[in-house]
Design a protein around this nucleic acid. Sequence first.
DNA 1: AAGAGGCCCTGATAGC
DNA 2: TGCTATCAGGGCCTCT
Length: 287
Amino acid sequence: MPELPEVEIVKQSLDKNIKFQKIKKVVVRNRNLRFKISKDFEFFLTNKKIVRISRKSKYLILHLSNNTFCIIHLGMSGTIHLLDKNNSINNTNSSFYNSPNLPSKHNHIEIFLKKCRLIYNDPRRFGFFKIFKNKKALLKFFNNIGPEPLNKKFNINYIFNYFINKKKNIKSFLLDQKFVSGIGNIYASEILFHCKINPFKQAKNLTKLDIKKIRYFSKVILNKAIKKGGSSIKDFKNVSGQNGSYQNEFKVYQRENLNCLNKNCFGKVTKKVISKRSTFFCNRCQK
DNA sequence: AAGAGGCCCTGATAGC
DNA sequence: TGCTATCAGGGCCTCT
């Protein structure tokens, strides 16, 4: 669920709340995340200072003292919670997109900072933490990841050349992090709707105009979602002004059998599975 | 090389 | 009421 916009919102929150703080203690309750938490994880982080927080596609990057790094991927169900020093929930942080109520289960990692405590919760454990002892190792990790839609490298020539002789459909490519990084299943459907491109269309058959639209709307939609604080698609009970609101802007996602929202189009939103993911599109205006 | 499919995992929900 | 089946999805992996 957390795609680029949601991760960006978390990044902004962390930037406000934990930057320049020193890590006092680290507790790992369950090491079996998507990748096993390394044995030296706690020792490595303890006494290091968080000097900067950045984001690359769906990854959060904690820049630590001595030119070291820790990356966090939220996977499908990962959320970060901050508690203040008295262990009460930090509700002053209005930009957090996840529930302000700390779950009682699946709190796998706790990082005690000078002024607060960071808790990583992840029921499905598709997320992970990974430490890097120098910048070279960090860059090597990101070497296999394609450009973000917001990046200049994601330009018409890059996309056009990438798609030569590619028979796979465009929806799968938008989810392929080697081609473009940061888009997930929800925004992939939304982007293609705005482009009026059928998700099954083979990449090699996309016209230059199609490619221009893909580049343009990828950027526009992700930026708009960031402005709206991301999308929150479940647990509406827990909303207390901390959730994003881009879900209210969805044109096709989870709108199966409803009318197409394009003016003058009388099509219906269709749901089809593409590479094991639900895909929503208008069967009439997306060609 | 490209592409298809499997797998990891838990919680919510549907159907009987 | 309680069981089982299905779905949700990010990314790495193997196999063809």
